[in-house]
């Protein structure tokens, strides 16, 4: 059984102008050990696909018009909120784009980590190394220990002290490490990372990608990595899906798609990547291709 199987997913959003179809029949299957890169320009529906898996799109305005999202066989579109909450943070981890705005500024990073660990531990005590039916006190102690351990694991030095830091006392890269620790503390089977490196500078980007790569291999989990950076895809993804206007135009193993793109849009996207020998004034945009034809 596939870890995640999105089948013919359709999503519509209501606004003042009426209902607009946003996602058109998304099909995507992620197995354990696969890192799927999802690329596409702004507004192509990458993030909404990611948020749909965790059922984080409020309804209204969102409405699923068709399809299913099966997580280990269970259709998440049929799941109620309590059932979804048991999956979030425990079976499905999420990381978002901007580390400076995704940590709560009024709380120590430890408080937030411990609360997520406690939530995951309540759903499944074995996550914290406890037997089923562990006491609340045991859970709390284990959650605290696990928070320190997890900070250490994502490469934060002096974790026992750092756990008492407020977000504004940490650098952007450290904050993203904390957020990765928060997403991974419940030992999820699926990680959805929505542009996790976009807000970081290049050298930190590489560190964070290496860290994610290591964590994924260690745990054998599936990853949906949403990005608009083809360089990132080439570096760590095993598979790639190219999105455009709410559709997946092309998908497959990363090598095949990037080396031999079958779709005109993918080609245009690849040509738009600036290279070291690109001359001044030669930077190509996507304006040259016929969007209607591409659809």
């Amino acid at each position: 059984m596939a870890l995640l199987d999105i089948e013919n997913l359709g999503l519509a959003m209501t606004s003042f102008e009426g209902e607009t179809q946003i996602l058109h029949g998304i099909d995507l299957t992620i197995e354990r050990g696969e890192i799927w890169g999802m690329v596409g320009e702004t507004g192509s529906g990458k993030s909404l696909t990611g948020l749909s898996v965790s059922r984080l799109i409020p309804s209204p305005p969102g409405r699923y018009t068709s399809g299913a999202i099966r997580f280990e066989g269970q259709d998440l579109l049929q799941a109620d909120e309590p059932a979804m909450r048991r999956l979030r943070g425990r079976r499905i981890g999420m990381i978002f784009q901007d580390p400076t705005t995704n940590l709560n500024p009024a709380f120590r990073v430890g408080t937030q980590l411990v609360d997520v660990a406690l939530h995951a531990g309540r759903a499944d005590p074995s996550v914290l190394g406890l037997a089923p039916g562990a006491s609340a006190r045991a859970l709390k102690a284990a959650a605290k220990a696990r928070a320190v351990e997890m900070l250490d694991h994502v490469g934060i030095t002096n974790p026992a002290e750092r756990i008492r830091s407020y977000p504004h006392e940490l650098s952007g890269g450290m904050k993203q490490r904390v957020l990765i620790a928060m997403a991974m503390i419940g030992k999820p089977d699926l990680l959805i990372a929505d542009e996790p490196t976009t807000a970081l500078d290049v050298s930190v980007q590489a560190q964070i990608l290496r860290l994610m790569h290591a964590l994924v291999h260690e745990r054998d989990i599936g990853v949906l990595l949403i990005t608009h950076n083809l360089g990132v895809v080439a570096q760590i993804c095993t598979h790639v899906a190219v999105m455009f206007r709410g559709r997946i135009l092309e998908k497959g193993p990363v090598r095949a798609v990037l080396k031999h793109p079958s779709h005109a849009y993918t080609k245009a996207l690849l040509d738009a990547v600036p290279r070291a020998h690109t001359k001044r004034g030669e930077l190509r945009g996507l304006g040259g291709i016929d969007m209607e034809a591409a659809e």
């Binding site: 984080l56 909450r85 979030r88 943070g89 978002f96 705005t101 940590l103 995951a120 419940g186």
Partner: peptide, 26 residues
């Protein structure tokens, strides 16, 4: 509407905990 509230929801914290602890203080 802040990003961190979405993160807290995405990681499964209960709406009561989010509202009366994380949102209240801010």
């Amino acid at each position: 509407q802040q990003d961190y509230v979405l993160t807290e929801r995405a990681l499964g914290l209960s709406s009561r905990l989010i509202l009366f602890k994380y949102v209240l203080k801010n």
